[in-house]
Design a protein around this nucleic acid. Structure first.
Lengths: 228, 228
DNA sequence: AGTCCATATTGGTCTTACCAATTTGCCGCG
DNA sequence: CGCGGCAAATTGGTAAGACCAATATGGACT
């Protein structure tokens, strides 16, 4: 972690916390350098990073705060990490979005899979079916399965979105205690539902199974966050 | 446009063009400074920006190129602008993604709209219905309508994704000649389809209208790009 | 009260310098 | 010939100082 990343992190969080109003001017680079006990170069690198998050607009005369609504999606992770517990509403929006992305991937992938790919997917699902009890080992298999679908769907735009969100989200949610865990019956339904869809080349079937899975997931996580 | 942004743009495009293999080392900051006739500070700021795109990994010892698959979605715009004409496949993936995002927004927004919002939406649709002939003036109304839905759906994650993609995509596609334009009948079907959905509180109806609209759009754009 | 201009401030850029970590390349050993 | 190990060169990280052009500020003047 370099000095400029540290500084960027602090300033980013302050902006996300709303400590500056949109349109307001950020302290000058020289003032920030003094505040952080760093060189102006380090501060400039930090500001350059925050500018890429589209949280500020740097111009001769000063850097001005922008609306969070116009920011890059890269602020979502830091936004989750602001409090000691992630914001329940934002987490639900994340999961809802994941749900839509998974549905997208499934409906685009299934109609174009080859026989070999189908065999591969079925094998992965069978491996998952043997593992319903331990969420810890099912999770990575689920991710691998969705990644396979993602490769088949072959949409770079959605792939980058999914990767980005996943990276920001998973990392922050793994810290939760206690980790919510779905009932084996639900997982069983998910796996068998997807299996049926893959077998029949029914993308909508796979998507539907994912939909209900994400719905239960959202309910569960909401409950976990409420109690935390 | 500052020097560091210029340099970052050049290096970014070179990486996106595949002029470096993943894992390969980028020239040192001092060499790059010499190449661009700039100071090391300017180059460092540029590299810091490229690092935020997740195109490189900066470490003591050197900056190493990463896989484009792991990059930020902020590379999609530059990726569209690499050639004289945007890549048709990537454009289609963009539109497909827009389609899914619009569907998401519609299905989430419609069930939770208030009477006042419904009135507003219907008014917007009526204004659009009077304007089917000129694509130039319909386009912004369509965007405003989707933005209204977006505000109602109230999902920050999807909003940021949509904003981001839109900003990157629209800007690059406006340069196309000739600009593709849908037949008035199709637009008529879109507007009336959405109107029916809004009236009946039928999110799936609105989404379906959007689906068919984006399908025609994709066919049209593919044709335009093939001829360009 | 409004306008205009001099001044101070701010970002943009370059130079030079030093440190710590990594990489490189050479040497000697097995 | 290969391989381990050590020293030197290279590389990124950071700092301090300086100058310019564009912007913002404040005061003088009308």
């Amino acid at each position: 972690m370099t000095r400029s990343h540290e500084i960027a992190g602090v300033l980013r969080d302050e902006i996300l916390r709303g400590q500056f109003r949109p349109g307001e001017r950020l302290p000058s680079e020289r003032d920030l350098a003094a505040r952080f006990g760093a060189s102006r170069g380090a501060v400039r690198e930090a500001l350059s990073q925050i500018e890429q998050l589209r949280l500020i607009d740097i111009q001769p005369g000063g850097a001005r705060i922008k609306e969070v609504n116009d920011a890059s999606i890269a602020v979502l992770g830091p936004l989750l990490g602001l409090g000691s517990v992630p914001d329940a509403g934002l987490v639900d929006q994340f999961l809802d979005t994941f749900s839509a992305l998974a549905r997208f991937t499934a409906t685009r992938a299934i109609p174009r899979i080859t026989e070999m790919q189908r065999t591969d997917l079925l094998a992965q699902l069978d491996a998952m079916a043997d593992d319903l009890g331990s969420v810890e080992s099912l999770q990575p298999k689920m991710r691998a399965f969705l990644l396979t679908l993602d490769r088949i769907a072959d949409n770079l735009v959605v792939r980058l979105i999914s990767n980005d969100l996943q990276a920001q989200f998973v990392e922050r949610m793994l810290l939760l205690h206690p980790r919510p865990s779905l009932k084996p019956e639900s997982l069983q339904a998910l796996v068998s539902g997807m299996r049926l869809g893959v077998e029949n080349g029914d993308g909508e079937g796979v998507a539907a199974a994912l939909d209900t899975h994400f719905l239960s997931m959202r309910a569960l996580v909401a409950q976990a966050l409420a109690s935390a």
